[in-house]
Structure formats: C-alpha cells, structure tokens
Nucleic acid binder design. Structure first.
Length: 506
RNA sequence: GGCCCGUUCGUCUAAGGGCUAGGACACCACCCUUUCACGGUGGUGAUACGGGUUCGAAUCCCGUACGGGCUACCA
C-alpha cells in the first residue's frame, strides 16, 4: 500500500502558489493511480510565522481543485494528529536519542553569537560561513563544553537547540525518482538545527519523524529541497534505517520570468500565482487567485499537470480521470518550467469551449450577478452560454459577451453603421421594424429568410444591412449570429432596439 | 564563493544512437464569414559551445558557458 504525503507551511507571505498545487497534484495522481493514500500535513512549527485561517484556505483551494486528501487536519485519518504543534512532544525524544548515539549535540549559542560568528568568518572566498565541522569546535556546544557544564546548562533551562553532527567525510546518496542517483559529500553540509530553542522541530527532524510514524512510502517535494536531502537521508539512517526510508521525488521548479515563480512576478506581469484569492493578514494586501480570475478548476489542473510532465503523445487536454490514468513519475522532467500565462489562458479557453452550458451555468450566473444582471430563466441562460462560450477565455468574459441578451445596450457604437448609411437603408429598416412585428414563427432561421428576402426586394446586399442590424441589437461589432440573438431577446425587444437606433440615426 | 540541479523554436515540450528534429501556445499570412470568435491551410522559429566515443550523436562521456536552487533556531 502506497502512502504519499504532502506538507504545507502556511506563511505570512501566504497563498497557495502554482508549484504548491502541482506538488499536491502529482502526489494525488500517484496515490490514486496506485490505489494509495494521499495525506496532507500542516507545518506549523514556527508559531511566529503561522497565519490564522491559512490552513482552511489551503484546504479550500484543494477542494476547489478536486484534490481532497484522504487524511488531513481538517479531514481526519488514523495517523493524526496532522498538525506539527500537536505532535511537539514526539520530536524531542528522537532528537535526544540522536544526541545519545553521538549523531547530534546540544548547542547553546545565542542568536547574537551566531551572527557574530558569521561576520567573523565571512570572506570573499566564503561569503556565508556555516555552522559546520570546521566551526563547531569553536562554538558553545556539548562537543566543546565539559560534561558538567552541559548538565548544568540543561538543568538551568538555558536556551539551546539540538544540531545534527554531520560526519567528517562520508558520501551520502539516494535514488531520486526523477533524477536518479544523487550524491553529497557530508563534509560540505552544515550541522542543521533539528530541534529549536522553543522545543519545536525544524522541517528536517519533523519530516523524517512524521514520515516514519505515518508510514509514508513516497515523498514528493520541490527541487529547492534537494540540498537538504542528505540531512534527511542521514536522519533516516540513524533513526529508523535506510531500508524504511520513503522514495523521494524532487519536482522541478515552476519558474517566473526571472527564476523561481514568486508572488511579485504575478503582480508585476499581471497574472495570478495563487490558486485562490489570498489576503495578507498583516498588510491586508489582496492577491488575486486563478479561481477569481475566472479559471475553471479542470483547466487549472490541466495546465499545471502539463508544466513538467506529458504522456509522450501530442495530447494536451486531460481531465482528472485521464491524468490519473496516464500519469507516471518516470515522465516528469528534471528541468524547471517557465510559466506561460498565455498558454494557461488557452487551456481555460479550451475547457470553456468543451464544457456543456449547464456545467458553466452557476459560474456564469455569478459573473452576471456581480454586474447586476439577474437571470431567472436557466434554459435561456444555457442557450446564451452555448452561443457565446467559444468567445470566452476567462469566466468574466461572459459578461461582455452576453450582457446584450439580458439588457438593452446602453452605449451603441454607431460608427460602423454611419460609414455606409443612407436614406435607402433607413427606409429598409423602418420597414423591417414594422415587418418583424408580423413574423409568426420567431425563430432564427425564419427571421434570416425573411430579412434576406426583404433585403433582396430592396436591392440591398445582405452584407450591407446585416452589420447595421447587429449594431442595433448588440451595440457593436461583436457577438454570435444576429438572428440567434434576435430569437433569444424576443420580438418586442428586437423591434424596440431597431427603432431606438433608427431614432439615433435620424 | 561553495554545494546541488538543469540546458531542443520566444514559451511548454516530442524524438531514449539512424527519415527533411514533430506538436502546442504566441506571432504573421491566407481561407471560411454579417461582426467578434470558432475552425481550416500555410509560414517565421530550436538541439548553448568545444572536444571525444561511433559507420552514424539532440540522444552516451568529458570540459566550458549559461540558467536556476540551496547556503536561517523558514519551510
């Protein structure tokens, strides 16, 4: 039985970004494909950074995407608790065990002493000195202090952390599901903090302890974690045995125009980077999400899945079911992918075109409602959606594309009519205005036949009178077939709009 | 600086030693057309560079360059 987990750290900068959702998606697809469990964990190890409501926000985003986890803080499961703060006691025991075995040590250095150390050892050759094997013997820790001092400090509750003691010269490697064998020289990795002074674990300790306790078999995360993988491998080796370590997959990064995609990029280039709207609780700053921008969750998932993976064919449109079927970790790329908003919009457009009107109904209702257009007739709304959906890339486009079905156009662009307007056409439309009143069967085809026949009688080419008719009905040069529009807005309204524009032209 | 990862059209990618390096987005042209779209046809456009290995390299190896990530008591 496979168990895949994903972890989230709600942070003040907030928001569930593209890379995050894609990681969840790949976790989800892998778990579902192999009949496994898909577990969501919440990293709230740093209370100063934890944001109230962020947990529910993440869950809401995943729900919108259709990625509801089997186990999570908000969803239950038998391996809980799933919040790190609720598991605090478990971690210290493991950290102490490492100290006993000689794989970790207590460090009493204050934050000030650490910055001092970094300043002192900083040089052009080494711009960022680390707490590593070359430095640790000059610091205040249980390796340099006497046993009595250490015992005294501990009994006096002197603030301290527990650091891993990286071996002097060892090669640590593992097989990444995407990259194959990856090796690190332990001499070049620093002594990472495992347990913080407040008693909370760091990610490094928590991820290993939790994965063991929750019987995780596969762990996917972003490529930015690769450099700390040797720490995790070592912890598995010391604590639970390498043979029980989950299989790792380090997913390629999603890049913005300059490096790792950030919230800033979204603001700068005008595209969303979060799944759903996120308001920074500190600044009150709102960052628009894909949902609010008008993306369909199916399209969002589709575009995300293809950012770093493909099935080897030329197929690009995948439903969640098709993804689950076709997905395989072997075909996930190792290189980062630059996010292209134009292509993202194309995916949405495709999904809107392919959607049946009734599945779009509530979303469109919502868009129109926001513009104070209430539609009570859902059969009518479905017909309208069917007519205009191929012209809509994002959900809000439905307003511009369909408002004239529900309200008389306010601003009418007369320039296309005026260009070729004359008395002849004026007379013709006067006649049509009256003639339409006598049409029995108010259907698009019949209207078209009637209109074109009348035009022929007046020796007018259909092309010369169709554009004016369109402008009269919709207010500009856009929209679906004019007779379809006329049919849906009805006889009275059609005649009204023709007469109104005629008056404007007089 | 050190370590790690990566590199095929502008972007996402296909091709796993063997046809003129294929598709999609974007862009351009044309066709369709009552407008705007949809659709259709075509076009511009790529194997970072240098060495090997091989009959043959986008593909395997080495080096260089470039890009990215990490280098916190953040994840």
């Amino acid at each position: 039985m496979k168990r895949v987990r994903v972890r989230f750290a709600p942070s003040p900068t907030g928001g569930l970004h593209l890379g995050g959702v894609r990681t969840v998606l790949y976790n989800y697809l892998f778990a579902k494909k192999h009949g496994g469990d898909f577990v969501l964990r919440i990293e709230d190890t740093d209370q100063s950074r934890f944001v109230d409501g962020a947990e529910k926000y993440i869950f809401d985003c995943l729900q919108w995407c259709g990625l509801v986890p089997d186990e999570s803080p908000l969803h239950g499961g038998e391996y809980g608790p799933y919040r790190q703060s609720e598991r605090k006691e478990m971690y210290r025991a493991y950290a102490e065990k490492l100290v006993e075995k000689g794989h970790a040590y207590y460090a009493f250095d204050t934050p000030e002493e650490l910055t001092e150390m970094r300043e002192k050892f900083k040089s052009d050759a080494n711009p960022s000195p680390q707490y590593d094997r070359s430095i640790r013997m000059r610091m205040k820790n249980s390796l340099t202090l006497s046993e009595e001092e250490v015992t005294r400090f501990l009994s006096e509750d002197m603030p301290h952390v527990i650091r891993i003691k990286m071996p002097e010269n060892e090669s640590v490697g593992f097989v990444d599901m995407i990259r194959g064998e990856v090796h690190f020289d332990t001499a070049l990795v620093d002594d990472k903090v495992l347990l913080k002074a407040d008693g909370m674990p760091t990610y490094h300790l928590a991820v290993v302890v939790d994965d063991h306790l929750m019987k995780i078999t596969h762990a996917f995360r972003g490529e930015e974690w690769l450099p700390s993988a040797p720490v995790h491998v070592l912890l598995w080796k010391y604590l639970f045995g390498l043979e029980k370590m989950p299989q790792w997959a380090h997913l390629p990064l999603i890049l913005g125009p300059n490096g790792k995609l950030s919230k800033r990029d979204g603001a700068k280039y005008g595209f969303p980077v979060f799944a759903m709207n996120w308001t920074d609780p500190k600044t009150g700053e709102l960052t628009e999400g894909f949902r609010e921008k008008g993306f369909l969750p199916e399209a969002f998932i589709n575009l995300l899945a293809l950012l770093g993976w493909n099935d080897g064919s030329e197929k690009e449109l995948f439903s969640m079911e098709e993804l689950t079927e076709a997905f395989s970790m072997e075909r996930v790329h190792s290189g980062g992918a630059k996010f292209d908003y134009e292509k993202a919009k194309w995916f949405n457009h495709e999904w809107i075109k392919a959607a049946r009107p009734e599945t779009l109904r509530s979303e469109v209702e919502c868009v129109l409602d926001g513009k104070n257009i209430k539609v009570s007739d859902s059969a009518l709304l479905d017909k309208v959606i069917g007519l205009v959906k191929e012209r809509c890339t994002l959900l809000p486009d439905f307003y511009e594309q369909s408002k004239f079905f529900f309200e008389t156009p306010k601003d009418i662009d007369l320039t296309p009519i005026k260009a070729k307007w004359d008395q002849d056409k004026g007379n013709f439309f006067e006649l049509i205005g009256k003639g339409f009143g006598d049409v029995q069967n108010w259907k698009a085809v019949d209207l078209e036949t009637y209109f074109k026949q009348k035009a022929a009688e007046h020796k007018l080419k259909p092309g010369d009178v169709l554009l004016p008719l369109r402008v009269m009905l919709v207010g500009g040069k856009f929209g679906p077939g004019v007779f379809e529009i006329a049919e849906l807005i009805g006889k009275e309204e059609t005649i009204l709009r023709i007469k109104h524009v005629l008056k404007l032209l007089a």
